[in-house]
Amino acid sequence: MQSATKVVRRDATAASGDSVAILAFSGDIASTSKDTVLQAYHGVGEVKKVLLDFSGVDYINSSGIAIIIQMLIEERTAGHRTIGIFGLTPHFKKVFTMVGVAKYATISPDEAAALAEM
């Protein structure tokens, strides 16, 4: 009953000149998304900066947010990448902030702002 999660990777350059992998999600971000989301993240390669694009996401629940937190935990342990987020609706920006995600990942309104932040 949940919509499949899709991820498309594209590459960009941050304002700093660093390469950035953008993972653009669509569909639902829920418990069933875990493998898709984490496999996409594990496959980004050697880039040091990753942006998560939620502008195509229809539905996010707390289990989906937990997957993003899992990603942040892995990165904190490995300690070699910066993760940023953009494309959240105002409601989900509020929710991500309420649960503390904003403390560990910069949340920007759109791709241009996110690349400028990186």
Binding site: S62, I65, A66, I69, L72, I73, R76, G100, K103, Y104
Partner: peptide, 14 residues
């Protein structure tokens, strides 16, 4: 979130 990040709390449970 700090306890989640340090592994003292499950990522889920929100």
């Amino acid at each position: 979130i700090d306890r989640k990040m340090s592994g003292e709390e499950e990522p889920r449970g929100m």
